[in-house]
């Protein structure tokens, strides 16, 4: 299977992701922000697909776009929009924000420039896409079994904690 128009799709998806990201932070309406975030997440899923990682893309869609964002929207929808728009949005800490963004940007550039020599050259080989899910499974349950189980335990604790906190009497 040979990919077509790779640069086009790459720039399209990246552009969409960026656009979504910008919209998230500029929209005043929280629902619009959430929807823009979904756009970003979907574009990211597309990028994963281009990287021959369909499983990650699928999980991205089903968990982030389909699951978490629905809950997000749920909460936002319950808050009155007219009222939230009237309210002061956030503390307008422009200076701090710019400094933080600048530092982060410099860091990225430095890592990219300096780290190029450290990291191995990008491999041109195409991973075996048809075994992607199986590979992820093998890695998770053989190589990183312990970490995986720890993470699941943490999540379980979080779930129980959430239930206990949300429910007044059990």
């Amino acid at each position: 299977m040979t990919p077509i128009a790779t640069p086009f799709f790459f720039y399209l998806l990246s552009g969409l992701a960026l656009l979504g990201g910008i919209l998230v932070i500029t929209r005043k309406n929280a629902v619009h922000s959430a929807l823009a975030l979904i756009l970003t997440l979907l574009a990211l899923a597309g990028l994963y697909l281009m990287l021959y990682a369909p499983f990650v893309a699928g999980v991205q869609i089903i968990l982030y776009a389909g699951g978490i964002m629905v809950l997000f929207l749920f909460v936002i929808m319950l808050v009155s929009i007219e009222r939230s728009q009237k309210e002061e949005q956030f503390n307008k800490q422009w200076i701090v924000g710019f400094i933080a963004a600048g530092v982060l940007g410099v860091l990225f550039v430095l890592v990219y420039v300096k780290g190029r020599a450290l990291l191995p050259a990008p491999t041109a080989q195409i991973p075996n896409e048809s075994q992607n899910t199986q590979n992820v499974g093998v890695l998770l349950y053989r190589e990183y079994m312990f970490a995986f189980e720890i993470a699941s335990l943490l999540l379980l604790v979080a779930i129980i904690g959430a239930v206990v906190m949300a429910k007044k009497r059990i």
Binding site: P54, G58, I61, A65, G66, G67, M69, V70
Partner: peptide
């Protein structure tokens, strides 16, 4: 035929909720 066929179907149809 996607390697993630079922996952894809469930994922995309879950977007319908949105």
């Amino acid at each position: 035929d996607m390697n993630i066929g079922v996952l894809f179907m469930l994922g995309v149809s879950s977007l319908g909720v949105l």
